[in-house]
Nucleic acid binder design. Sequence first.
DNA 1: ATACTTGCAAAACATTTGCAGCCGC
DNA 2: GCGGCTGCAAATGTTTTGCAAGTAT
Lengths: 145, 145
Amino acid sequence: MLHHSEKNKSFEMACRQKNLRVTPQRIEIYKELSKAKDHPTAETLHKRLLKRMPTLSLDTVYRTLGTLAEHGLIHKVDTTESQAHFEADLSKHHHVICARCGRIVDFDWPVVDESELPEELSNWGHVERRSLILHGICRDCQSTH
Amino acid sequence: MLHHSEKNKSFEMACRQKNLRVTPQRIEIYKELSKAKDHPTAETLHKRLLKRMPTLSLDTVYRTLGTLAEHGLIHKVDTTESQAHFEADLSKHHHVICARCGRIVDFDWPVVDESELPEELSNWGHVERRSLILHGICRDCQSTH
DNA sequence: ATACTTGCAAAACATTTGCAGCCGC
DNA sequence: GCGGCTGCAAATGTTTTGCAAGTAT
């Protein structure tokens, strides 16, 4: 696990490597996403950032998240929702999503990461990443009926 | 594997069971989705159906797909795209998605369906369904460079 | 007869784009 | 200085909603 300062440094290096300019907006958006544990949407992230950067525009957040996701510096979460959710954690992990409250929780499952893919995929192409989504009802939502 | 007529009969029964009225629109939308192998969006499905049902409105397609998905009669595919993709196939299976062309292909992987879920999820709540998404580049898109 | 569903139109929500000025390199 | 990035505004794309008329049960 990297410290925050190291993480941000490596983010700047990753940007340079991809020929993306290191702007204050990108740094702050990435930092805010990194410390978030709730897979926020562009709008949520924008609201949080406005406190620190009152002039940051929502479309810059959209554009930045899009750019970073395209370059693999962050991930868009696979969802059935209309709003896109993002995360900065690039380590192998998966998601459980509650159908009631929509909360997304991370979990690890090495079986999925490490098992050999089924034969029928052998000539599909190149598989880059595996992302498992569990759908269900979380404990809180069950008890609230 | 059910025949089409059986599938449609069981769809009508499923609707009745859920107190959803069996309307021509629902039947046709479900039939069109059932025979599609490409996980169409609401708009794509609407275009296909217009040939047969010239007065069918797009918002009915949206509403119907939403209703059927809510009741578990069809599935919304977990995606990073902005447009929702649907499928009528409820059997356990998973999806590979090409980052270039966006094509979604089904595959089976019993390891994912049958392995016991990791300990850390034991008190998350009730897990209903497992959906694995593989991200990559399909063979066609690799060769077209 | 009643309540659910549809089609129309409009609204709401989510995301993208054009452009002029700004800023990282 | 150049080219990419931002903020503003406007456009586009996607989905949802209100309502009156129609239809399944």
